[in-house]
Write a protein that binds this DNA or RNA. Structure first.
Lengths: 193, 193
DNA sequence: CAAAAACTCTAGCGGTGCTAGATTTGCATG
DNA sequence: CATGCAAATCTAGCACCGCTAGAGTTTTTG
């Protein structure tokens, strides 16, 4: 019965190949350049093969996004654990902004496109929960009496807003760092109410 | 020479018609349903007529977005002026969130799509500057010694992040109001640093 | 070694944004 | 009022998109 095992393994490898090719193509030329034809050519299979692995183009993007969540969680964790508790939020924020800046296409798949993943529920992918957890741990020292989960969501949303508006040309990029500092000051300062 | 004047007027009316039809179609069925064919059919002209008014579909979306900025600025102004100074930021925030919730397609054109407009410069459209100005006036009482423009940008980004993540399914919608309250608490509280 | 099952490909559907060139319309002139 | 011209508009089509039916090939099974 090892023959079936080999087939499954090869199939899994090919699926991984598709995901990687899609990510690389998106990171090189943006998601609008990732067409099923170009992707099929790149992995050296015909288009229908893609559809034997994924329901459609959106599902491929979702798979890429899932990889991204794992990467992001790892980088946030590294940033948080290499900083003292008081400075953890600054370190995590910087890591988050750097990730979005360094891998914009991946960030888009994760947070801008419609990927149809469960997010803020127990059914959310572990990597996603891990990333959120890192953020929450960095926020915790400044939460005061507030709901930690909710406050983390607010902080995350603020970071996300800064990142996306800056990259969309809505905010001038030069002051990006200063804006994050300003945000940090509001979250690390004394708690009102 | 009034004949040319009439032609220009008719042409301007038709352009307005196109913009309105695009907005209505987007608000009814989303931007992915706004194709040049459907839009042309709706205004009862052929496709190439659209291209005699706009460079392409993106330019049509930009025109729709411009209308949106005027609407948003007006609503923010109404919210701000109908509240006492201390409560202005809460009122403006609520108005902003309500606008995004009530007119999601319009909000997308303004802040999510690539519309190629000058944003944070003196060349930005007046309506855009007006909207930002409303936000800034509401932020001013809580700015302390910080750069008002920069702080307003941060607050705006936070609002934008909350709004987009919620609508994209990244944040559960039920707690939307509580998140905005939490954000407000961080911006209206005592100033650190 | 043949039948069956699994797999992959070619070819095509209906759609997209956009445009070249034919055609119609409406104005200025004789 | 007729006619020639210019401007406005339409028809038809290009190259591309996501996706899939059915033909063809390869591999496994009896």
């Amino acid at each position: 019965m090892s023959i079936q095992g080999r087939k499954e393994r090869e199939r899994a490898e090919r699926e991984k190949l598709i995901i990687t090719a899609a990510r690389e193509l998106a990171e090189a030329e943006g998601w609008e350049a990732v067409t099923t034809r170009r992707l099929a050519e790149r992995v050296e299979y015909s288009q229908p093969v893609l559809y034997s692995h994924f329901k459609g183009k959106d599902a491929i993007m979702t798979a890429v996004a899932l990889e991204g969540f794992a990467d992001l969680a790892e980088e946030l964790r590294a940033a948080r654990t290499s900083a003292y508790a008081a400075g953890a939020l600054a370190a995590v924020s910087a890591a988050y902004a750097a990730f979005a800046d360094r891998r914009p296409a991946l960030y888009d798949a994760m947070f801008r496109q419609n990927v149809d993943l469960p997010f803020a529920t127990p059914q959310a992918p572990p990597a996603l929960q891990a990333g959120f957890g890192e953020l929450a741990e960095a926020v915790r020292p400044h939460a005061g009496g507030a709901d930690l989960g909710l406050l983390t969501e607010v902080f995350w949303a603020a970071l996300h807003g800064l990142v996306t508006l800056t990259r969309g040309g809505r905010l001038p990029g030069g002051e990006h760092g200063r804006r994050i500092e300003l945000l940090l000051a509001r979250f690390t300062g004394p708690i009102s109410s």
